[in-house]
Structure formats: C-alpha cells, structure tokens
Amino acid sequence: MSVKEYAAPGAVPPKPTAQAAAPPDTRLTIRPARRARRIPRLPRAVRRAIGPVGLLVAWYLGSVTGVLPENVLASPVDVVRQAIELTSSGELPRAIAASGRRAATGFVIGAAIALALSLTAGLFRLGEDVVDASMGMFRAIPWVGLIPLFIVWFGIDETPKIALVALGVTYPLYFNIYGGIRSADSQLVEAARMLGLGRIALIRYVILPSALPGALVGLRYALSTAWLALVFGEQINADAGIGYLMSNAEQYFRTDVIVLCLAVYAILGLLCDFVVRLLSKRLLSWRASFDGDGA
C-alpha cells in the first residue's frame, strides 16, 4: 500500500497534550476489508447441511454402538430399509394416498368455509359483527379437544377425520384473509373511489389484492395445520392411511415404521410449503423483489 501510515493499527496514539490542537499523528489509515481468505469458504448450502447431517450420523452411530436400542429408536438404516420394503409392497403408497385424500378433502371444505366467512366478515359491517365475534369465541376452543365430540357426532369413519382437518384449516385461513381485507390501505380505497370504481370493482381491484399476501401466509399455516389435524384424526380407528400404519407399528414396537411415518408426514408438509412458496412468488411478483418470496 502506498498510503502512508501515521499510526500503526492497534497502537495507542499518544494522548494529546492540549485538546484544541490535536497532534498530527492521531490520523488513521482506513484499509480495504480483507476479502481474500486463505481457507476457501464452504458454500452456504453445505454449511447449512452440516447440522442435520451431523445429527443423522450421530443417530446412526448411536444405533450401531447400541447406545440407542432398537425398541427406543430404530437405526436410520432400518428406517430406509422399511421405506423401500413398504414402497415395493405398495403399502406405503396406498397409505399416503388415503391420508392425502383425507387432507385434501378436509382442506377444500375448510378453505371454502374460511373464504365465505372471511369475505362476509371483511366486506360487510353486519357480517363482521356476527361472524368475527363468533370466530373469536370458537378459536378459544382447542380444536384437538373436539375429537371426542366429533366421534359422538360423526362416528369413527372418515367423517370425523375430514371434519378435524377442515376445522384446523378454517381458523388460520379465516383470520389471515379477514385481517388482510381489513388492512386494505384506506388511501388506496379512497383513490379507487375517486377513480369511480363501484363496489364490485373496488373489491376486485383493491380489497382482494390487498388481502392476498395475508391469505397466502394463512394458506401456509392452514396446510401445516391440515397435516397436524390429520395426525390426530388418524389416531381414531383408522383402517388405512399413514396413521393406520403408525398405530399398527405401535402395537409391535416397530420404531422403524413409526419413524418412517413421521418422516413421511414431514416430507408431505414440506412439499405443501414449497408449493405455497412457489405460488406466492408468482402471485406477489408485484412486490419489490427483496420480499418476493411471499412469507
């Protein structure tokens, strides 16, 4: 570097004798940040993978050395072997299909209810007074606690499982869409009125687009709740589905199958989340690019 240094970095400059006249050697040289490192940096994805992979390895080592007995937690190798076995026998795909159908049916019903209620509450003063107060009251009831009541009402077939999923989906969607509608910028609403937009056009061009970001956040919550509700629902006398596989395995202490089922639930949940992220990216492309990934 050609810039002359007046004070070595780290060296304490001599105390000024008089405050008014600072001695010339208190100047510092501002150096460019050191970018080139001797050790090449690991890519971010690799660094992020270290934790989960490390846990898997620890799990594997624990199983091999017998620290983790099989009746506590099966080894990851057994879980993978089970996955292959149950997939080739068709048992796992059938279970996923059965569970997926329940989740989808429940989700569609719940989403329809949430949409109808949130639009009623968001767009009409009377609807707000009637619907929102009731939803606030119902939300205080933990929906999982309704399982006994659902069994009494709907029996132990498919209906209580679907109803549970629908219920779990309704709340997050309702509150997020309703909140989104209510958070519509009053300045934009005013501008739209000034431009001569009628009620329908106002809803279409101003209110609903303002509610979209919130609705998509609600959708993500709703989908994760749907899978959660399914896990609870499938504990009720299931004769098909992932929950059925799991409760069967429970009887025989097959921890490998239980872990496999948990992994399947997790993967399905992640897949749904991924789809919503993609959807958000497309639908919210009008946002500035830095928060374009939706959530």
């Binding site: 934009l188 739209a192 001569g196 937009l197 061009y205 687009p209 009008w286």
Partner: peptide, 24 residues
C-alpha cells in the same frame, strides 16, 4: 379527478392498468 401527495397507485396493477383503472 385528483392527485395526492402520495401517488396512491395500486401496487398489484401494472403502471398502464393503474392509469386506466376505473374508466367505464
């Protein structure tokens, strides 16, 4: 018609759609 201190454009509509929004 009016223009305000903040432009009050609908962020989810392209610029040209904003201009003709509300025309009959």
């Amino acid at each position: 018609s009016a223009a305000f201190q903040s432009p009050r454009l609908m962020p989810w509509l392209r610029v040209w759609r904003n201009v003709v929004l509300g025309l009959p």
